[in-house]
Amino acid sequence: MATKTISLVVQPRGKPIRNLPKELEISSNASSEELHNVLSAASGCSVHRMRITKGSDHSVVPKSKNTTVGDIGLLNSSVIYVKDLGPQIAWRTVFIIEYLGPLLIPALFLFPLRPLLYFRFDKPLPTPSDIQLLVCGLLTLHFLKREYETIFVHRFSSATMPARNIVKNSAHYWVLAGFNIAYWVFRPDSAAASANPNVALVYAGLALFVFGEIANLNAHYILRNLRRPGTTERGIPSGFGFSAVTCPNYFFEILAWLGIFLVSQLNWSVLLFVFVGGLQMWSWAWKKEKRYRKEFGDKYKKKRSVIFPGLA
């Protein structure tokens, strides 16, 4: 079959893009990724900053090697809109920054900043209890694992996000998992400061934490292996936990945090973080379930529970 060249009408959406061509000739057999690259080269706008949508229905044109211009439904004289999304930051960098705060804050609050934070308490301040040291260690281990996964395990479906969102994205972890938990758990009058903690809570919490972290890491490796390096293609996940819920990685994550909650002697600040994070993960999990159903059709076994087996 002869290759057909089509002419697309190109219009900016939002602020003007310097050197953006008004028309573009491209093969109907060209990939949508090539369309992005050609427009990027012509306009000088980074391919990561551009969002291309169809004029007919305003749907986003994917940047895919396996989808052609013709597959998308673009014909001769079709209109496409190009939007400059502004400065971008790599998702890997985003996660490294997000987790860096709660990785460092607990030790800072427990040691060098302790006299400044708890200046209203009688001096000299008592030394941190064994339970406070243990909670600090668990928090550090958790976020070291997160940083490891970000650098060596995760493969991202999107390369970048708007740089202006970094503060908003980081606030959840820096504020709720960092400042909030560290301040309240490490107070000299918190339950975790007691010399006689509830030992049953400590051992049960440690068991939950260890199981949750190992199972969560395993789930992340399963998800990693569904996507070939350098691609955004996905497969149907299977393995430990995936037959029961859509996102067992979220379930195991919550178990690990409930373990920290128990070890902290039921400190409300940890439970607050678990509750807020759990709501967000529940929303993400339902979106992923809907995407799996749409993307894989009858090949995918629908789940009624997306995080908690038998519940939600």
Rank of each mutant, 00 (worst) to 15 (best):
residue 274 V to D: 01
residue 118 Y to E: 14
residue 226 L to N: 05
residue 246 T to E: 04
residue 231 T to L: 06
residue 289 E to G: 04
residue 246 T to K: 08
residue 308 F to Y: 11
residue 295 E to D: 13
residue 192 A to G: 12
residue 115 P to L: 04
residue 179 F to W: 07
residue 115 P to D: 03
residue 8 L to Q: 07
residue 300 Y to N: 01
residue 311 L to C: 15
residue 155 R to T: 03
residue 185 V to I: 04
residue 2 A to C: 11
residue 230 G to S: 01
residue 64 S to D: 15
residue 52 I to E: 13
residue 51 R to N: 15
residue 200 A to S: 13
residue 54 K to H: 05
residue 155 R to H: 09
residue 60 V to L: 08
residue 251 F to M: 00
residue 225 N to I: 01
residue 80 I to N: 05
residue 263 V to R: 01
residue 117 L to A: 03
residue 180 N to K: 02
residue 138 L to V: 08
residue 55 G to Y: 08
residue 16 P to S: 05
residue 174 W to C: 03
residue 142 H to L: 08
residue 156 F to L: 06
residue 119 F to E: 12
residue 183 Y to S: 03
residue 128 P to W: 07
residue 298 D to Q: 12
residue 102 P to G: 08
residue 202 V to P: 06
residue 90 A to M: 05
residue 97 I to A: 00
residue 24 L to A: 01
residue 208 L to P: 01
residue 291 R to A: 02
residue 119 F to M: 03
residue 237 P to H: 02
residue 252 F to Q: 00
residue 35 L to N: 03
residue 55 G to L: 04
residue 60 V to Y: 05
residue 33 E to H: 10
residue 89 I to D: 04
residue 151 I to Y: 09
residue 307 I to S: 10
residue 149 E to C: 02
residue 176 L to N: 02
residue 280 Q to E: 07
residue 43 S to C: 03
residue 209 F to P: 12
residue 170 S to K: 08
residue 73 G to L: 06
residue 308 F to S: 09
residue 7 S to Q: 13
residue 302 K to Y: 06
residue 129 S to Y: 10
residue 254 I to N: 03
residue 201 L to C: 14
residue 134 L to S: 02
residue 12 P to F: 14
residue 10 V to K: 12
residue 13 R to T: 09
residue 46 S to D: 12
residue 285 A to M: 04
residue 53 T to E: 13
residue 21 P to T: 11
residue 96 I to S: 09
residue 200 A to E: 13
residue 261 F to G: 06
